[in-house]
Amino acid sequence: MDFFHETPGQQQLRKSVAALAGRYGLEYYVDKAKRGEDTTEVWEEAGREGFLGVSIPKEYGGQGAGIYELQIVSEEFAAAGCPLLFLPVSAAICATVLVRSGTEEQKRRWLPGFADGSARMTFAVSDPAGGSNLHRIAAHARREGDGWVLSGRKVLVSAVDLCDAMMVVATTEDPVTGKPRMALFIVPPDLPGVSYERVPMALTAATGQFDVVFDEVRLPADGLVGGDTTALRHLFTSGLNPERITFAAWSTGLGRFAIDRAVRYATERSVWNTTLGAHQGLAHPLAEAKINLELARMCVHKAAWLYDNGQDGLGEVANMAKFAAAEAAIKAADRAVQIFGGHGMTEHSGVGIVYSMVRVAHLAPVSREMLLNYVAQNTLGLEKSY
């Protein structure tokens, strides 16, 4: 496989995921979001079908494929109007971090559950004060006996109420130098000292966001991901690039959904004795949106291919893919709304709801501005701006 041509197996995966997602669709998703419920039925069925574990090694219950296959799953669910927002968190970040950097005990404890959908883990990184600035993370873990004691706060953590554990970024002391360093800890949300509160969000989403407080939370020795000698940059490389790739695929899937709805409406709706699609003022913006979306998809596919094949330049392409996918998807949704006119903002059209969803792509899991900073500094060689 190269990133221009998918194998028969990958093509079949697309068809299978699309078929499952199509049995649920946007109406199901919106109903769940309104009720404040999660798309648990979809998640569990996707786990039984092996879709959640496509990138997890076979020895831990997965399919043994790669991030390319995982981004297929993410894209096709979104393209059907049933986006699994939590997939880039649990399957992309947490699972890949444990696959590449976890201890054997941690792998056997968590990966089979990730693969079959029976276990979930969320990722907690942003502190209230630091935001995207990892150097200002205030959450801290200190050694106490054979274990750890964690204190601090995290904001906008996904699906804490549904997860078996959180993977938490915190500072600690290097065991050799004694200097501050960052590390990852696995923290079950039901431990004494952990509290969390749902944050009301101004978007239609079936996955909740939470603020979390850790008050002298005691963790066992194996609560530390990977052990004392694992550098955080390796952990982040393991998980954050796959997150960017699968979230980019999520974005392009929503863009596809919006364009498909708009094209159907433009084909069926007739005014002035011809269809809407016959007017260049409406057809050209849709065509341009389609072109930009396909360019973004190629970038996503290239990033996934680079990750799976261990090639250089992954960070650059993963960040570019995330940026391009967000730009293309947001424009696609915006133009889809315009095709519907005033009806575009009705719930029935579906595209107005998608616009509110995909707008998140400029903010999470990394902001548009930080992506541009990365390319400016690492690709163009410009002086650091912050």
Rank of each mutant, 00 (worst) to 15 (best):
M1S: 13
M1K: 12
D2R: 08
H5I: 09
K15E: 14
S16T: 10
A19Y: 02
R23S: 13
L26E: 09
E27R: 14
V30D: 03
E37S: 13
E44T: 15
E45D: 07
E49P: 09
L52T: 00
P57K: 02
K58R: 13
G62F: 06
G64A: 11
G64P: 04
Y68L: 10
E75M: 12
E75F: 00
A79G: 08
C82I: 14
P88E: 05
R108Y: 01
R109P: 00
G130C: 09
R136N: 07
A138F: 00
A141M: 02
R143M: 03
G147P: 07
W148T: 00
V149W: 06
S151A: 10
K154L: 05
V155K: 12
A165T: 01
F185K: 00
I186V: 11
A205Q: 11
T207K: 09
D211L: 06
L232M: 15
L232W: 09
R233V: 13
H234F: 12
S238T: 06
T252H: 03
T267Q: 15
S270R: 15
T274H: 13
G277I: 06
H279A: 14
A287W: 14
D308G: 06
G313M: 10
G315Y: 07
A318C: 12
N319W: 09
A321M: 06
A328C: 11
I330K: 08
T346L: 13
V351Q: 00
S356T: 14
P365M: 10
N378L: 12
L380K: 12
